[in-house]
Design a protein around this nucleic acid. Structure first.
Lengths: 143, 143
DNA sequence: GAGCAGATTAGACAAAGTCCAAAGATTGAA
DNA sequence: TTCAATCTTTGGACTTTGTCTAATCTGCTC
């Protein structure tokens, strides 16, 4: 397991290691993603990056998110039918999804095991197993 | 476990049992959904319903899918970031998702068990656990 | 600095889904 | 059967998420 540092030089090194140029926009986006543990949507990334001053366009945010995803630097989380979220945590883990608030929490995959998965059809390989625990506030707690 | 019959009188009875009027459009949509085992998108339902002649509008298809979902007659499958799919199988089960083709196959939940899920925060209850096995054709099988 | 490859951009575009006010269908009661 | 009340359906405008493109910009090498 490889810890990702969030300071600028480390991010620059990380991008170079993956063969992509560490442009100003990519660094800004990387820092927004890695600088917090939240799961962010493309729109949220765009807003954060341009918070103090306009830095990047919508197209660049989408380009960069897809690039980072292809390089394995971030993961897509498909849980909310309205939008894709991006997860800076690339360690094996699953998600707890609050259907009322939209809030997402990580579940470490270490403690968790799944048994009884069926054989895959010949010629197929598993790319990943996503587990989503959908939760909501109980009736009692809404009193 | 309760088997759902797909003939018109049974569907009418089912809708009435849930307190909703068995309108022409709802019956058409129900038959499209229950008459095959596929996972359909709203657009596909719309197309099927209007295959031979125009029967229902887009708005009605969306209204009805949401209604059926709220009543528990169908389930949303959130796997493809582009669209929600609707699953007429309401028995406990999970999904195999072919990331290349978009094809979805059911995995019976009976054979499957998950252990090591964390305690929920106080006041939260689980609404469901979705497991999605993402698969693709192996390199070898691509010749 | 010239040339070049790659990156960024605005804005047009596409698709999924929601919303609304008007029109249509259903139903129970008389 | 008819009526009125209620519920449904509808077209179309609208919103949101995401993609695409052609033009511009940047940074690098020579």
């Amino acid at each position: 397991m490889e810890a990702i540092s969030y300071d600028r030089p480390s991010v620059i090194a990380l991008l170079r290691k993956h063969g992509i140029a560490p442009t100003h926009q990519r660094l800004e986006i990387a820092q927004v993603l890695f600088g917090r543990c939240h799961h962010l949507s493309a729109d949220q990334v765009l807003a954060k990056v341009n918070e103090s001053q306009a830095e990047t366009s919508k197209a660049t945010v989408y380009n960069t998110l897809n690039l980072f995803r292809d390089l394995g630097l971030i993961r897509e989380v498909i849980v909310d039918p309205k939008r894709v979220l991006y997860d800076p945590n690339t360690e094996p883990h699953h998600h707890l999804y609050n259907v009322d608030t939209g809030e997402i929490t990580d579940i470490d995959a270490g403690a968790l095991s799944v048994s009884g998965l069926p054989e895959l059809p010949t010629g197929m390989v598993t790319e990943g197993v996503d587990i989503i625990v959908r939760v909501r506030a109980s009736e009692a707690s809404l009193g």
